[in-house]
């Protein structure tokens, strides 16, 4: 199990001079499901690349299980933090689905039965178990993206970080991603994901961190972050709360970030006095 701590993290890109992170403090407990939301360019991707050492802080530090990530190599961090990038085509290289998924766990020194089990589980979770011998380039965009996810899942890292896992996915792919997140959380793994899909965020995560201009502007449960009191702050980052929240607010039902929450509240209202 792993917990993550980000302390006064500042990142300035050397080539462009852009201050992408402007003092982030964040603590993520082991087993939490956290969504990072914000406009393009708000610093979300820069933040997650610090978690596994691909980027190093300009100021501040990142702690993984209490150890300073600055003293670990990316290869060492990769055993604890699995990061799935947005674009699968920037990582797929192997001639078969199986070889692609084996690459990560092999780098971590896995072999034999342990390796086979990790690969089989990852392929089953992403629905690719029937494609082991397929050339990844023969898969459609949606399944290539699931393959990239499987290739990191198979590393069985205590922390899973996903950069926009649902973009370019069809409805079935989105459901797969959601099932993977829930199974990972059920197994006690920490999940951090970047997403623009507020409805997905409200339904699949227990905590939402909203970023703007390299800072955290809101941090709480979906119920808090999508509550009416937060709408102005949310809109200042050009984000809209999910439809269920907007309807719940309009009907004076309190915070209803998901369809299920809204409908439950409506049924309470129909059956007894609303509180």
């Amino acid at each position: 199990m792993a917990d993550l701590r980000v302390e006064r993290l500042v990142h300035v890109y050397r080539e462009s001079g852009v201050r992408a992170l402007d003092g982030i403090d964040l603590e993520i407990r082991a087993g939490e499901r956290v969504a990072l939301v914000g406009q393009n360019g708000s610093g979300k991707t820069t933040l997650v690349r610090h978690l596994n050492g691909l980027l190093r802080p300009t100021e501040g530090r990142v702690l993984v299980d209490g150890h300073d990530a600055g003293s670990m190599t990316v290869a060492q961090l990769a055993a604890r933090i699995g990061l799935v990038f947005q674009d699968p085509d920037r990582q797929i290289f192997a001639g078969s689905v199986r070889a692609e998924v084996e690459f990560g766990p092999r780098n971590l020194g896995r072999s034999g039965a342990e390796l086979s089990a990790a690969v089989a589980d990852a392929l089953a979770a992403t629905g690719l178990e029937g494609e082991t011998a397929t050339n990844p380039y023969d898969l459609g965009g949606s399944r290539r993206k699931l393959l990239a996810l499987a290739s990191v899942l198979a590393m069985r890292t205590p922390v899973l970080v996903l950069d926009e896992p649902t973009t370019g996915q069809d409805a079935r792919g989105v459901e797969r991603v959601r099932a993977v997140i829930e199974a990972a959380a059920a197994a006690g793994r920490t999940v951090v994901a970047i997403s623009h899909d507020m409805r997905f965020v409200a339904e699949a995560f227990e905590r939402v961190v909203v970023m703007r201009g390299g800072r955290v502007v809101l941090d709480g449960s979906p119920s808090d972050v999508f509550a009416e009191a937060s709408w102005d702050a949310l809109r200042s980052t050009y984000l809209e709360p999910p439809l269920a929240s907007r309807i719940g607010g309009r009907l004076g039902l309190g915070s209803t970030p998901t369809d299920a929450a809204l409908i439950a509240r409506l049924r309470e209202g129909a059956e007894g006095p609303a509180s």
């Binding site: 439809l243 369809d259 299920a260 409908i263 049924r267």
Partner: peptide
């Protein structure tokens, strides 16, 4: 394989729940 728009999905969920 197509996700319905939020409003349609919500209406259907409501109907299924008897609201």
């Amino acid at each position: 394989g197509v996700a319905p728009p939020a409003m349609h999905r919500l209406r259907r969920a409501a109907a299924d729940a008897g609201v």
